[in-house]
Amino acid sequence: MDMGRYLFRQVRGSDAAAIYELAVANEYHSDNLPLNRSLIKAYVQRSVKDFAIISSSGVCKNPLYMFVLEDTYTRTVVGVSQIKNILWRLLYQLRLDPFLGENIGKLALKKEDGTWELGGLLLSKEVRGGKLGKLLSYGRLAYLMSKGLAPRMLISGFLKNTFWEYIAIRIGVSKEYNPDKHWRSFKTLTKFMGLLPAHILLAETGIAFGYFEDLFKIPIPIKPESEPARKLLVDMGLCFLKEIEANGILWHGAPWKVIRDDNFMRYKVPQDTIEVDTCKTSCHLDIGMAVLPSDDFRAQYIPVAKLEDGRVYISKKDFSCGKPKHLFIFETKNV
């Protein structure tokens, strides 16, 4: 796969239709990326506005930053991701009961302050398996750093729609269960949650987490396609939070300082170690994520060569802009 043909960039107003078609083609639906043309258009317009505010040195009170992965050869959108501020969450919180020795669940409305969510990541089935998902995920963090944005906490959720649907069927309220309706209505969601069992057990198995409903002792497995994304975020320093979103989302979270300084920054290449040569692509086997010198945020993969002495080589034939604004190396074969 020629990864250099794919460009990670800020969303544009004209991308709304392409994002909707991408979601339809991949049968994707979540609260952050609903399978709804009007809502996606509204999210895109809001994001374009927020990007404009930041570019003019303004402050966004409730930001939403959406990004797309564009195939520059075909001029098509093959991926999308986002990062946004969240004001409150409706949670089914798990707390250990010292007498029962079990995690007891309780419905709670939690107000957030300085908490941002990584979400809405979708990569076309046609281009999966080539590390482009990492560009979609890590590119958001590079954007935050490039703009000096510093949320207090960064969290990520994994959709488990099948969990709540399963519980609804088992307790006989499947007719009342409607994901689209309950996700957006606090009143109806609270009513639905009141019908759930008194508590839910949560079991941890390696990097994948499974739910166990205490009445039936039947595991509800995590979707397999979520596991690579979860491992990636755990490796970045996000820890497991014992909270289940009321719409069936399992949260990971960590302070932004930990992610930025202790994890993400370990991949950043110092500018004074970057050398530009005329070597062909085949000479460079490592993978670098280059942030382009551009007014709007853009990033792409380029072949690089990381040597034992710390020097990093990139080729003019692969990167015509000279030295990248920032360079991160996630995959190395030479060292």
Rank of each mutant, 00 (worst) to 15 (best):
G206S: 06
L250F: 14
I86Q: 10
M66H: 04
F212L: 14
I274R: 04
S14G: 00
V291Y: 05
L109E: 08
S137C: 01
E275K: 07
F67Q: 08
S38L: 13
A254S: 15
G129D: 08
E204A: 09
E112L: 15
N263E: 07
Q93T: 12
V11A: 03
F8T: 02
I222D: 13
S320A: 14
F186D: 09
L136Y: 02
F319Q: 03
Y20C: 02
V234G: 03
Y313D: 01
G148Q: 06
S156D: 00
D71V: 07
K134Q: 11
E225G: 01
S56V: 03
G58L: 02
A208Q: 14
V68M: 06
K325R: 14
R260T: 02
W88M: 09
H199D: 06
R152Y: 06
C279V: 04
V11W: 08
I104S: 06
E117D: 08
M153W: 11
M145G: 09
G119Y: 07
K110H: 13
D262S: 12
L233Q: 11
C279M: 12
H284P: 06
I200K: 06
E27H: 12
F319G: 00
L121D: 00
F297P: 02
L307I: 00
I53Q: 11
A246V: 03
I200G: 06
R184K: 11
T205P: 00
P303A: 04
K223A: 10
F51S: 05
D296L: 05
T273W: 00
T188Q: 11
G133Y: 00
P293F: 01
N32H: 07
A168K: 03
A254T: 10
D2F: 06
I19P: 05
H182E: 02
S30K: 03
N161L: 11
K84W: 05
R230L: 15
D295K: 13
I207E: 12
L121R: 06
L39C: 04
T188A: 08
K317L: 15
W164I: 11
R9G: 01
S146Y: 02
V78W: 09
V11Q: 00
Y211F: 15
D31H: 08
G139P: 03
I54A: 09
S320E: 14
W183H: 05
L195S: 13
L122A: 01
A16K: 05
L250E: 07
K333E: 13
D277Y: 01
